[in-house]
Design a protein around this nucleic acid. Structure first.
Lengths: 112, 112
DNA sequence: TAGATAGTTAGCTAAACTTCTAATTATGAG
DNA sequence: CTCATAATTAGAAGTTTAGCTAACTATCTA
């Protein structure tokens, strides 16, 4: 969970997560939205991957990233709860619908 | 808002916010919960103050910190919303009741 | 006034973070 | 096989961060 908040501390990475909200995107497509070099973006992707916030999948020549909404939601809402912010997420099925091929279900709480 | 997430990226600072959840505490009382020097804690308090997450008030010899729940909630829930996590906070009056002398209402969105 | 207590400021170090360019790996197409 | 494309790894520079000790300021108390 510490890794998640560290990952969220950078504006570029938060932006990446928002872009992935609509569905999976390749590293290149994501990078096109930012004014930094591709290697720099690659580092950001690794931070997000290390925090288990995104899933990476090789698709031919490129790498497609997708958001692990459940992990993000758990971290955000979990922390909110420790503060008495009784948030009640109604995240709905919007995500499952937009990412039909990415069930992102096998996530089993595995960070430090 | 970037300052808020930066502030939240450190475990010690997140812990401080949780301790303040129950009500205001002095710098010393807070510092007693951690295994770091007082100057180090002082820096953490400044980061939290700079992010507008806490309010500091001098009370005689000591400085009493209190949580600005509204700011924290707005950042957390605001970001959650940009991700489609339609969270619906029912933070209730618990805070107002525990901190009767700290209305913490005059917060007007003033960070970079 | 003198001493004790609460915090901060100053100055420093070590580690981590962000970013870059250049070089490398891996895949797809001609 | 060779070239182009997508992305990564490697290495380096500059900045930020977290932590410390020592010294200072401010307040309370005897």
């Amino acid at each position: 969970m510490s890794k998640v908040f560290k990952a969220l501390s950078d504006p570029t990475r938060r932006r990446v997560l928002q872009l992935l909200r609509r569905g999976p995107l390749s590293a290149g497509d994501l990078a096109a939205h930012f004014d930094v070099s591709k290697p720099t973006m690659s580092v950001h992707f690794n931070v997000l991957k290390d925090a288990d916030l995104v899933h990476a999948e090789k698709h031919g020549n490129s790498i497609v990233y997708s958001l692990k909404m459940s992990v993000l939601e758990e971290a955000l809402m979990g922390f909110a709860q420790t503060l008495g912010i009784q948030a009640h997420s109604i995240e709905a099925a919007s995500n499952a619908e937009l990412n039909p091929e990415r069930p992102q279900a096998d996530n089993k709480e595995s960070q430090s």
